[in-house]
């Protein structure tokens, strides 16, 4: 059942319970999960140890997920990195903005665990 096969996911999220839930789901599937809670230093963290997939929340302390995404896409080193955006604001405008900025996938909270898993698998495989 384990499909992760040691691939690395970086979860950028500041809500402790959500971190716990996603970490649990992905670890159980064989992924190595790293977490990061601060928006301001997120880009540095990604550049220092590039993961296979990034899961990026929008509302972060210090710097918003949209800004982080914009900086990632502007940097050639990370321009192609698969990014799954997570947001609790489910308006169409949010989805449009995420797509415009170059998010690989976009999910609205609350999500089903299966769905997250499927998305991450797709992104890592693609």
């Amino acid at each position: 059942m384990a499909r992760g096969m040691g691939k690395r996911v970086l979860l950028i999220e500041d809500e402790p319970n959500i971190i716990e839930a996603i970490s649990f789901i992905l670890s159980r599937d064989g992924w190595t999960v790293h977490t990061h809670s601060d928006g301001e230093t997120a880009n540095d963290r990604i550049k220092a140890t590039p993961p296979d997939v990034v899961i990026l929340d929008v509302m972060l302390p210090g710097k918003s997920g949209y800004d982080i995404l914009r900086d990632l896409r502007a940097d050639p080193a990370t321009a192609a990195l698969p990014v799954l955006m997570l947001t609790a604001r489910g308006q169409t405008r949010d989805r449009e903005l995420a797509e415009q900025l170059g998010a690989s996938e976009f999910m609205v909270k609350p999500f089903s665990n299966e769905e997250v898993l499927a998305q991450v698998r797709t992104l890592a495989g693609g």
Binding site: E15, I18, A21, I22, I25, A88, G90, K109, P110, F111
Partner: peptide, 11 residues
């Protein structure tokens, strides 16, 4: 509303 609901659903 969605933030706590996310944890609840997931767990």
């Amino acid at each position: 509303l969605r933030t706590p609901m996310t944890s609840i659903r997931s767990f």
